[in-house]
Deep mutational scan, measured.
Amino acid sequence: QEELVKAFKALLKEEKFSSQGEIVAALQEQGFDNINQSKVSRMLTKFGAVRTRNAKMEMVYCLPAELGV
Rank of each mutant, 00 (worst) to 15 (best):
R42V: 13
L67H: 13
L4F: 06
N54W: 02
Q30L: 15
Q28N: 08
C62W: 07
K6C: 15
M57H: 13
S41E: 14
E29I: 10
I35N: 00
G68M: 07
Q1L: 12
Q20N: 07
F32W: 09
E66R: 06
E66Y: 09
F8H: 01
V69S: 12
E29Y: 09
K56E: 10
F32T: 00
S18H: 12
K56M: 10
E15H: 10
A10P: 01
E58V: 09
K9E: 08
C62G: 14
Q20G: 07
G68R: 06
V69R: 09
E66L: 06
L27E: 00
K39M: 15
E22T: 05
E3G: 10
L4Y: 03
M57V: 03
S41Q: 13
N54F: 02
T52I: 15
L11V: 05
Q1I: 11
L4A: 03
Q37W: 07
L27I: 02
P64I: 05
L12Y: 01
L12P: 00
L44G: 00
V24C: 05
L11I: 08
D33P: 14
K46Q: 15
M43W: 07
K9H: 11
Y61G: 02
M43N: 00
E66K: 07
N36L: 04
I35Y: 01
N36I: 04
A25T: 11
S38W: 12
K9S: 05
K6G: 06
C62E: 04
L44Y: 01
T45G: 08
Q37N: 09
R53C: 07
V50C: 14
Q1P: 10
R42A: 15
L44E: 01
K13N: 09
G48K: 08
K39P: 01
T52H: 13
E66M: 07
E15K: 08
F8Y: 01
T45M: 11
E14D: 07
C62M: 13
L67R: 11
L4H: 01
G48C: 06
N54T: 05
N36P: 04
N36S: 12
G48I: 02
A25R: 14
E22K: 08
Q30R: 10
E14C: 14
A65R: 08
E3R: 08
F32L: 02
G21W: 13
Q37Y: 09
E14P: 02
L11K: 01
K6S: 10
E2V: 13
K39C: 10
M57E: 10
K39G: 09
A65V: 11
R51V: 10
E22W: 03
C62D: 03
T52A: 13
V24S: 05
K9P: 01
E2F: 12
S19H: 09
